[in-house]
């Protein structure tokens, strides 16, 4: 494992399209559910333990070599909101481009050929981690961190939240991210032997409902 490669993949400046997505934060801000650093933290914590842990397990399983087609179907079943499925595939496609340019690999080429319009982002992330010489724990960390740093950055732009407060939120979630990342690797290993049904399916109702409401807005700052 190479720590430097992990930093490259986890860097918010890695050009894979994440900057245009708020991870549901824009909808929650508009609904008045995120108003400050405390509510941002609760939002991020909720995401971390629902869609976040699911994505991290998918990414870890993909990094362990589980069939991407099966993982993609499992991700579809765990993403009932069509707006979120579209966003996940779009981000997957963008990540695929960035990863193939950065770490050329036959596996990534094969994935791109199989899903020219994009596979779910965590599936691509897992294979990108493999291509970068990283392991399932790295993939899980990247996925989890992205899942909370995206909303935090978005809320800085949407509410003018103090960026130091937003970064403090991420720091306070570190221990939980550590635990969930370990869990994700253990789950990923079980997927290798027992199949994708052992993936968690935890969901957050307001993320799903909010995503659909957001997708129907005529005017918005973020793509999701």
């Amino acid at each position: 494992m190479t720590r430097a490669a992990l930093l490259v993949l986890a860097d918010g400046r890695f050009p894979a399209g994440g900057h245009a997505h708020s991870g549901g934060a824009e909808a929650a801000v508009r609904a008045g559910r995120i108003t400050d650093a405390a509510s941002l933290e609760a939002f991020c914590r909720g995401r971390l333990h629902t869609s976040g842990v699911v994505a991290a397990c998918v990414a870890a399983a993909a990094a362990l070599g589980v069939d991407p087609g099966e993982l993609n179907r499992a991700a579809d079943a765990r993403t009932p909101s069509p707006a979120l499925r579209v966003a996940a595939r779009r981000l997957g496609r963008q990540l695929m481009r960035a990863a193939r340019a950065t770490w050329p690999s036959a596996e990534l080429d094969a994935l791109a050929a199989l899903f020219p319009k994009g596979a779910h982002q965590p599936v691509v992330l897992g294979l990108a981690a493999r291509a970068a010489g990283l392991g399932p724990l790295d993939a899980a960390y990247c996925s989890l961190y992205e899942g909370v740093s995206g909303p935090a950055t978005a809320v800085v732009r949407l509410l003018g939240l103090d960026p130091f407060d937003a970064t403090g939120v991420l720091a306070r979630l570190s221990d939980e991210m550590d635990r969930v990342a370990q869990e994700a690797v253990e789950t990923g290993e079980r997927v290798v032997t027992d199949g994708v049904d052992v993936l968690p399916a935890r969901s957050a109702p307001l993320l799903e409902i909010g995503a659909e409401a957001h997708a129907a807005w005529a005017v918005r700052l973020f793509a999701s």
Partner: peptide, 14 residues
């Protein structure tokens, strides 16, 4: 339950 279940992403008091 895992953290945040009643927060702005989860049930938000519903």
């Amino acid at each position: 339950a895992p953290g945040g279940w009643d927060g702005p992403a989860g049930l938000a008091g519903h």
